[in-house]
Write a protein that binds this DNA or RNA. Structure first.
Length: 421
DNA sequence: AATTGGGACAACCGCCGATTG
DNA sequence: ACAATCGGCGGTTGTCCCAAT
């Protein structure tokens, strides 16, 4: 039996709120307090749904709301929190006084996700995605209007350049036809995902009592200096999980990326990373995609070593406890990860750092060769308009991890569909 | 000056968990 | 134990505005 609608929909006004309505609602709540949203419109004399009233009050009429643009500090915090919490906007908002979940969500979708998108790095070659739209045969635009966000960004940030902190955010000489990564973004990520953020995540760990867990902080493979979100590589190395006995357990960098080392893989680090921070890396996705019908998880990790792990065995062995599995499922079902096409836009992924950056071995000394990036443009397979990086090997040979068998052609297609639609 | 395309964001929708009777 | 209700959340849509053509 379906739920009754929250209110009678007939005769109710929809759309933008007028100042008169705002006044009525504000006065009513000031007089009677929040709550009883269902009956509020009737009592207040508003032709609005109770939910609509609540939303209007929470998002715009509350006195404690902060007005104005998101500051750099807030943006930093949002990025940090999103990396940890995923799309839990209300949780993120709770860390930003005066900001609402809706506001943050909109800001993320319109500003930050774009940044992340434009900085998406497709392979271990540390190449950002450069889509030659004319080659790819997509998104042919009529007009030549400059990307508005770029304009706004340039306009808005240029005024801040004086203090030297934001000059990195200005984009210059950007060719219209190319999605060129913002040179600033690595710095941005490096700055924003600092060790302070790690501490925050530790606090935020919903499984705080589980000492076996460690909040994984994914190091951006986009760092060209080896300094990732954690800062220096030494800092990353220091970040090792502690068992309940206080004994260090080394998981190399498997939290960030499976290393291909069998011993490391038994730690199933990527799965821990899922539940700890709601973060899923590319391999998580791949792993899900490659889940065999019999429950075996085929992990063609990083090439040569194809490791098959039976989920049941893992659970029994305590590597992945049932509740952890449940957590995984929850994450997956809740949309943080969907192995089907519904996931669609990468915006929907739980984490900026999890969706598309982590198929890379972070130990790679990442070099951003911008010239090559612009000139090379080899990411699309011209024959099929498919991004060849998905399964073509990296030049160091490790890249075979993404090279699927020919017989898996259907999977390739489904994976591509999942990634791009 | 009109048209067009797209960004920003306010608002809506549907689902879910908690609470209540 | 069950159904109804409520509040809250996240995803999506609709509308407004603006710059480019």
């Amino acid at each position: 039996m379906g739920r009754a609608p929250c209110c009678e929909k007939v005769g109710l006004k929809k759309g933008r709120w007028t100042t008169e309505e705002d006044e009525i609602l504000t006065k009513y709540i000031q007089a009677n307090g929040e709550g009883s949203w269902r009956s509020l419109p009737k009592n207040a004399g508003l032709l609005r749904c109770g939910k609509s009233c609540r939303l209007r009050w929470i998002n715009y009429l509350r006195a404690d709301l902060k007005r104005g643009n998101i500051t750099a500090e807030e943006e930093e915090l949002i990025i940090n929190l999103h990396a940890t919490l995923g799309n839990r906007w209300s949780l993120i908002a709770s860390h930003l006084p005066g900001r609402t979940d809706n506001e943050i969500k909109n800001y993320w979708n319109s500003h930050l996700s774009r940044k992340i998108h434009s900085f998406r790095r497709p392979s271990c070659q540390s190449l950002p995605v450069i889509l030659d739209m004319t080659k790819a045969g997509i998104a042919k635009r009529k007009g030549g209007r400059t990307n508005r966000w770029e304009m706004k960004k340039t306009k808005s940030y240029s005024t801040q350049e004086d203090d030297g902190s934001s000059s990195q955010k200005t984009v210059e000489n950007v060719s219209v036809n190319e999605v060129v990564p913002l040179p600033s973004t690595p710095i941005l990520e490096k700055e924003t995902l600092s060790t302070t953020a790690i501490e925050d995540r530790m606090v935020l760990d919903p499984y705080g009592e589980d000492k076996e867990r460690m909040i994984p902080v994914r190091t951006s493979p986009c760092q060209d200096t080896g300094e990732g979100m954690l800062g220096s590589s030494e800092e990353r190395e220091r970040l090792v999980p502690m068992s309940s006995s206080g004994e260090e357990r080394t998981i190399e960098n498997s939290m960030l990326c499976p290393s291909g080392n069998a011993e490391t893989e038994t730690d199933i680090a990527p799965f821990e990373s899922i539940e700890s921070g709601g973060m899923l890396c590319f391999n998580d996705i791949m792993d899900n995609e490659l889940l065999e019908p019999n429950g075996d998880l085929t992990l063609s990790e990083w090439g040569e070593n194809k490791v098959t792990v039976n989920v049941e065995e893992r659970e029994n062995s305590g590597i992945l406890s049932p509740n952890k599995t449940a957590a995984n499922n929850e994450e997956i079902e809740s949309g943080n990860l969907s192995s089907n096409v519904d996931c669609g836009d990468l915006n929907s992924c739980s984490s900026i750092t999890s969706c598309f950056v982590d198929e890379c071995n972070i130990d790679n000394n990442l070099d951003w060769d911008w010239e090559r990036v612009v000139q090379g443009n080899e990411l699309w397979d011209e024959k099929e308009y498919m991004p060849s990086w998905l399964w073509e090997s990296d030049d160091d040979g490790k890249g075979e991890r993404h090279k699927l068998e020919d017989k898996d052609f259907k999977r390739q297609n489904s994976l591509v569909a999942w990634l791009f639609y």
